[in-house]
Simulated scan of single mutants.
Amino acid sequence: MHELGIMFNVVKNVENFAKKNGITVIDTLVLQIGELSSVIPRYAKVCYPAAVEGTMLENTKLEIEILPGNCICNNCSRVFNYLEYKGICPGCESEDWELLGGREFNIKEIIAC
């Protein structure tokens, strides 16, 4: 489970940002995780308490937003969800598409008290 290492890295980055910006208390941390990302959101959420233990984020809430894995068909220009349609355009049944999003892993927001 690589999510624990990722969450330790997120905590370190958020702490560095907070120190540089004079933030002493953080209420909520919001992450965006693409549904095609290698990070599994529920595992990230489970690992979060271990990653924040003993840090300035120990009492923060974690919110995770799931970003869809959308594609655009190169034949008919239809936008569709890769997982829902298994990589096949529902408009023309083409497998020739470009990925628009869904592999992201972002720290979206740090909400200070």
Rank of each mutant, 00 (worst) to 15 (best):
N16A: 12
V25L: 04
M1A: 12
S77F: 08
L29D: 07
G101Q: 11
E35G: 04
C71I: 03
L31A: 08
R103Q: 14
I72F: 04
E53R: 14
A18E: 02
I66N: 12
L67I: 15
E98F: 13
R42K: 14
T60Q: 09
L100F: 03
D27G: 08
D27C: 09
C92S: 05
N9D: 14
I33P: 00
E53C: 08
F17T: 11
N74K: 15
N59Y: 14
Y43F: 13
I33Q: 06
E65D: 13
N21Y: 03
C113D: 13
F105A: 11
W97F: 15
E98R: 10
S37V: 09
T28Y: 05
C76M: 03
F80C: 01
G102T: 04
W97P: 00
G69E: 03
E58D: 13
N106F: 13
N70G: 02
K108H: 08
C47R: 07
E109A: 11
L57K: 01
V79D: 12
Y82V: 06
V11F: 06
C113M: 14
C47P: 05
N106I: 15
F80K: 03
V30A: 00
L31S: 10
E104P: 08
I88P: 05
E3W: 09
F105S: 12
V10T: 01
N16D: 12
G69Q: 06
C89Q: 06
E104H: 08
M56P: 00
I111V: 13
N106A: 06
G22T: 01
L36C: 06
K20L: 13
R78D: 10
V30M: 02
K20E: 14
G101D: 12
D96V: 04
V25K: 12
E104M: 09
S77M: 07
I88L: 13
F80N: 06
E98P: 02
V79A: 01
I107F: 06
N106Y: 15
F17E: 09
I107P: 10
E65S: 03
I72D: 02
V52W: 01
N16I: 03
V39Q: 13
L99C: 15
E95N: 15
I66K: 12
N81R: 12
G69K: 01
K108F: 03
G87L: 11
N21F: 02
T24V: 04
L99P: 11
N59D: 13
I6D: 13
C76T: 02
Y43E: 11
I88T: 15
V30E: 05
L67D: 02
C73V: 07
I88V: 15
V46I: 15
K19Q: 04
N13M: 13
N59E: 14
I23Y: 12
L36E: 08
I40L: 13
